[in-house]
Design a binder for these strands. Structure first.
Lengths: 177, 177
DNA sequence: AGCGAGTCGTTCGGCCCCGAACAATACCGA
DNA sequence: TCGGTATTGTTCGGGGCCGAACGACTCGCT
């Protein structure tokens, strides 16, 4: 087995970056943070998918949608999309998949016929009751290396980024005057 | 305009969670961290894509691959896939797209005919030289709300998670004795 | 020399993912 | 009442994304 991974080291990457853009006035800590954020999110999704979800035939996004519907005892699709942080178009496809597996049901609202309500089937509910504790245990393992304090700070910083982005994006096309 | 977003509040979500799984011995801080991590990564990708990449006809992943090849002055595809944190299968498709746009070139290695070397074309190089400073400025904006100290801690914690995951995943099917 | 084991990039099938365009529906002011 | 405007979920087209299977290739061993 190779002890030294053949992928490039952090220090090597920084060196190569400097050789290319060292002269420019760039924000390296910001680049490092964004890069780490993306890598970590990907790694976590991959790990949780492979250790918990795949053997049950669920994808990450499918599980997230299931979770949202479960926690709220059924939701309208527009809220489900926002809670799962995916577009409405994506949600339509994911729900179709989950519906085909008998885990979720769609029901057009009677008071507003544009709306569609999502509910778990009995099977979906049973699955989540069994699966979520396992999923959460895997989540625990993922952040086990962080102190309680670090974990709290991490969560706060990440939420701060999300908040910042919401402000930035919503202000983009709004009136300035 | 609605001041109060109609999506569920953090506190409301926790309340609903407690109602469902409050009796179980779960790790809530871990769940909050993972959830925040995923949301933040998605939000950042969406924001940077829409503000910088889309107008140039680039996707997030396409840009990352371009960046990796740029920084290293050409790489073998296996290293590019790992650096970009995507599978080899995905890389094949992304490279095909970038190649069709004349930004990247493929060249079979002469010493080992299994390997393929990736290089930027002159056009690709010019694009990165112009684009990366803009991209980095947008990255700066994303993390502008964090103090220097918070940013550093954030990056360290995220890297720690990645490291932890690499250990977990590689140890899964390896010999234990 | 040659064969078996390992590694490389590609292909394939299935799903996620999004923005844009769309039809159905609801709401509101004249 | 009724026409304009806004909102909802869906469809469509183009890509990203992965694991599994595969053919091409290399290398160590005999």
């Amino acid at each position: 087995m190779t002890v030294m991974p053949d992928r490039h080291t952090l220090a090597e990457t920084e060196k190569a970056m400097n050789a290319h853009v060292g002269g420019l006035a760039l924000n390296f800590p910001a680049a490092a943070a964004v890069s780490s954020l993306y890598r970590a999110a990907n790694a976590v999704r991959l790990h949780l998918t492979n250790t918990v979800l795949r053997e049950r035939g669920l994808t990450w996004t499918g599980f997230v949608v299931l979770w949202v519907v479960w926690i709220w005892d059924g939701v309208e699709t527009r809220h489900a999309a926002e809670s799962a942080a995916i577009s409405k178009a994506t949600l339509t496809g994911v729900v179709k998949t989950l519906e085909a597996r008998g885990l979720i049901s769609r029901r057009v609202s009677e008071t507003d016929r544009r709306l569609v309500n999502l509910d778990l089937t009995a099977e979906g509910d049973a699955l989540m009751r069994e699966l979520y504790p396992l999923f959460n245990a895997a989540e625990s393992e993922v952040v086990a290396g962080l102190s309680e304090r670090s974990l709290k700070d991490l969560t706060r910083s990440l939420r701060s980024i999300v908040t910042e982005l919401e402000a930035l994006d919503s202000g983009t096309d709004a009136a300035e005057d």
